[in-house]
Simulated assay, not measured.
Amino acid sequence: MEKRSLIHKIDFLWNGLDKTLGLIVLALVAISIVTFISATSGTHVQFIDQARNLIVSIGVMLIVSRIPPKWLEKSAIWIYTIGIALLLAVAAFGLIKKGARRWVNIGIVIQPSEIMKIAMPMMLAWYFQRREGVLKTWDYGVAALLLILPVALIGRQPDLGTALLVLASGIYVIILAGFPWKYIIPVVGAGTLGILLIIIFGGYICEPEVKWYLLHEYQKNRVCTLLNPSSDPLGKGFHTIQSIIAIGSGGLFGKGWLNGTQAHLEFIPEKHTDFIFAVFAEEFGLLGNIILLGLFVALIQRGLAISSNAPTLFTRLLGGAVTMIFFTYAFVNMGMVSGLLPVVGVPLPFISYGGTALVTLGIGVGILMSIHRYRRLVQS
């Protein structure tokens, strides 16, 4: 009897997975490893930590990819409820780090807001699946209430970046569920007008004596720094100015791996986490940026293709929302690092150093893999 190789014995792990999506993720992981090694050169951060995080993330992806979407649908309300309970626990007795109450100790220290990035679209997709065929206008109001509660709890911590990501994940589901454009267009118009007014009157509203009652002082500073980073080049504007210099100095082909001066002379802050894109852009230039952007576009395109071919409303909504979360991560991070958006602490998907964030991304890819595998099984 012919002996089976180890690869053939464990081929059940990737059997049925979407190979295109898998190759895209592996390419991003390869870029992450190369960039991380350069970004942490001469620092106390160890590559073994990021390698462990990536392995855990890929492991979680493989596990989730084996879970039938029907099971995800049945567990959605429970995962959402547990997430809300943990957010309430954070508000009541959560741990405070760097002035923010975002963590809770349940035997291990976790950040419950990360759970809601996946739990929120799962819950809303479950709700709209239940209302399929009898959907009324007021159902969107119910969905909005389900969305506002965790966003408010996360924003109160305060954690504006995560709150915006959870809000976006819920809004994507609501829009994909058929929310009328006649209501969306006025909101987009009002938001655009608000941005224009902030730009026009930025010099006045950013004066120290002017209070922004809906935002914390540090959040006001981030918006004002975006409008005029040179107003405090060695303080609040330092992050933005140095990252823009790094991106610009990369030129067409970059300075070469391990040769980025802004990164290795310690001018780029948080260079292995939120600002790792600046390190990559300086060392690999415009050409490297185009390749990286191409991979993210391919990731989003493949995720939407899997979602559009999904067999149920739940899987279409969940897959579409998860894919658009990847887009939001990449868009916000790159916009933040290049000075187009305020600094909000959003990592670059699969590139930035992180534990919980990488696991969340792994779950997201695993969900898309599960949707793809389930569709294949239904058709076979």
Rank of each mutant, 00 (worst) to 15 (best):
G303H: 07
R375L: 08
V104M: 11
R373Y: 06
Y80H: 09
L196Y: 12
V90A: 07
S380G: 13
I276S: 00
H44G: 03
C206K: 06
I108Q: 11
T81G: 08
L165M: 15
A177L: 05
F36C: 15
G191V: 05
P229A: 07
F331T: 02
E2H: 14
S338V: 03
I268N: 07
V60G: 11
I77C: 02
G161W: 09
W78C: 01
E73H: 15
W181P: 00
S307C: 02
N15H: 09
P311G: 05
L265K: 11
L318I: 06
M324A: 08
W78L: 06
N105I: 01
Q301W: 15
T360N: 08
L226V: 03
G83V: 08
S352M: 10
K74L: 08
M324T: 12
L293R: 01
L287K: 03
L286E: 02
L293P: 00
I198L: 15
Q157I: 00
L86W: 04
A281M: 12
G83A: 08
D49G: 04
I79R: 00
I325C: 07
A263H: 03
D18P: 02
K9T: 02
T328I: 13
G354E: 01
P150T: 03
R302Q: 14
V109G: 01
A281L: 04
N333P: 12
I306S: 10
V332H: 04
A100T: 14
L176A: 15
V378E: 15
F93Q: 04
L160R: 03
G133C: 13
V337H: 00
I106Y: 09
I33M: 15
G42A: 15
L286K: 00
A39C: 05
P158G: 10
P158C: 04
V279D: 07
T137Q: 12
L340A: 12
L23N: 05
W138P: 00
S243I: 07
R222Y: 10
G294P: 00
M61D: 14
E2L: 14
A51I: 14
I290D: 05
A51H: 11
G251V: 04
L147G: 01
H216K: 13
E209C: 01
N289V: 10
K211I: 10
A321F: 04
I306H: 11
L252W: 13
T261C: 01
V332S: 04
T162R: 00
A143L: 02
G364Q: 11
Y353V: 00
